[in-house]
Design a protein around this nucleic acid. Structure first.
Lengths: 213, 213
DNA sequence: AAGCGTTTCAAACTTACGTTTTAATTTGAT
DNA sequence: ATCAAATTAAAACGTAAGTTTGAAACGCTT
C-alpha cells in the first residue's frame, strides 16, 4: 500500500507550496525546493521556466478550483433562494474554504496562507494576472450582497464586504494578531470547524447591523 | 525653510521602514537601503550590528509607543466608566492606530503594514522577543472585554476578540482581499477616518451579537 | 534493436548578498 | 591646536542565489 510517487513537476509544486508558505517567496531557494522534492536543481527551470513562473503555477493550481467552487455555491444558492440570506451568502464563501482546509490532497490550509502571504507581499501576480481573470468573483458577490442587503448604500456595503472577507480570509489563513503578544493556544487550535462555528455569526452580525442615523 | 537632514541612523531607519514594507525583509537589500538613505553601505552594520538587528530597531521604534498609547487609553476608559462599553474598548485600540496612521512623522500607516507583513511572515522577532515583552497587552484587553461581555464564555470571547482585532488590524494595514480581484477604488481610498466610520459599528456588532442557543 | 524526443543530471556561470576590513575623515573635549 | 574617539568611506571577502549548459539516461514508437 505505498502511494505512487508523483512525477517531478508535481513534487516540485507540492514542496514549493509548503516552502513558499513557510518562508515566503524570496526566502525560499530553488535549492531548498529541489532538495526536499528530491529532484535535480535544473528541473525547476526545465519544467516551469523560472522561479517566478513556478510561483504562478503553484498559485494557480489552487486558486482556480477554489474560485470555481465559490461561484458554484453561489449559483446553487441563487437558484434555491428567492431572497438571498446573508448567512447563506457568507456560507457560499466559507464552505469551499473549509473544504479546502480539510483536504490534505489539495494542500489543506496551506493555500489560504499562501494567498495571505501573497496579498500582504503585494505580488505583481496579484495586481496584474489575477485581478483580470477573476474580477467576476467580486462582481458576483457584490451584486448578491446588494440583493441581500438592499438598505445599505454602495459605499457602506463595499466597506462591510471588505471587513467581512478580511476577517473570514484571515481566519482561514490562521493570521492571529493577538498571537503576537501571547502564547495562548485557545484560538490557534485552528480546527476549521471551530473557526466556522464562531466565524459565521460574527461576520453576519457585522454585515446586517443597522445603519447608524 | 529646509528640514534639517536627520542623522545617519535615523535616515537608515526611515528608509528601511518604507522598503521593508514595500518589498519585505528578505527582498530588501542593505544596498537598496544605504543607497536611498544616501549613506555608506557599512553604516548599517556600524550603527545596528546586522541586518536582523536593524529590522528589530525599525520595528521597536514604532511598536512600543503604539502599545503604550493603547494601554493609556485603556487606563483612561477604566477610570471613566464603571461598566466598560464594547464600543469604548474598541475605540481604545482604534484611536491610537488612527493617530499613528495620520502622522507622517511617525511613518503613518507604514508601521501597521510592516506589522502585518511581519505577522504573516512569522518572523522570529515576533515569536520570541515581542510575545514576551507585550503579553500584558492581550491580558489587559482580555480582562476588559470579559468585563464588558460577561455573558460570553472564555472560548467564545477569545474567538470574537481574534476576529475583531483581525479585522481592525487589516483595515489599518490596508489589506483588502477583494482588491485582489478588482480594480475598484471605493474601499482602497484608505482615508483613515473613513475606515473608522464603518469599522467600529461592524466590529462592535460582531462582538456583542447574541450567543446562539 | 534502433532511433528520437523527453527528461534527468552534475557542473559551472554570473550576479548579488551580508559582512568585514582598513584607512580617511569628522567630531568634541581638553 | 591637539589628540582620542566616533563616524564615514571604499574596497574586498566568502557565500549563496537563479540560471544555463551539454552530456547522460530514460521512454516510447517503429
Amino acid at each position: 500500500m505505498e502511494a505512487s510517487r508523483p512525477d517531478t513537476a508535481t513534487r516540485i509544486l507540492d514542496v514549493s507550496e509548503r516552502l513558499f508558505v513557510e518562508h515566503g517567496f524570496e526566502a525560499t531557494s530553488l535549492r531548498m525546493i529541489t532538495q526536499q522534492a528530491e529532484v535535480n536543481l535544473a528541473a525547476v527551470n526545465y519544467h516551469f521556466g523560472s522561479k517566478d513562473a513556478l510561483f504562478e503555477a503553484v498559485f494557480m493550481r489552487r486558486l482556480a478550483p477554489l474560485i470555481a467552487s465559490c461561484l458554484a455555491e453561489l449559483d446553487e444558492l441563487e437558484a434555491r433562494e428567492e431572497k438571498l440570506s446573508v448567512e447563506g451568502l457568507v456560507t457560499t464563501f466559507i464552505r469551499p474554504c473549509l473544504a479546502l482546509s480539510k483536504d490534505p490532497a489539495r494542500g489543506g490550509a496551506l493555500f489560504v496562507r499562501l494567498l495571505s502571504r501573497t496579498l500582504v507581499e503585494n505580488h505583481r501576480l496579484l495586481r496584474e494576472t489575477i485581478s483580470q481573470q477573476y474580477s467576476v468573483f467580486v462582481q458576483r458577490y457584490s451584486r448578491a450582497f446588494h440583493h441581500a442587503l438592499p438598505e445599505l448604500g454602495v459605499e457602506e456595503l463595499a466597506w462591510r464586504m471588505h471587513f467581512a472577507f478580511s476577517v473570514m480570509f484571515n481566519a482561514f489563513a490562521g493570521n492571529d494578531v493577538l498571537k503576537i503578544f501571547t502564547r495562548s493556544q485557545i484560538v490557534s487550535a485552528r480546527d476549521p470547524d471551530m473557526i466556522v462555528k464562531y466565524l459565521v455569526p460574527f461576520v453576519v452580525a457585522g454585515l446586517v447591523s443597522p445603519v447608524k442615523g
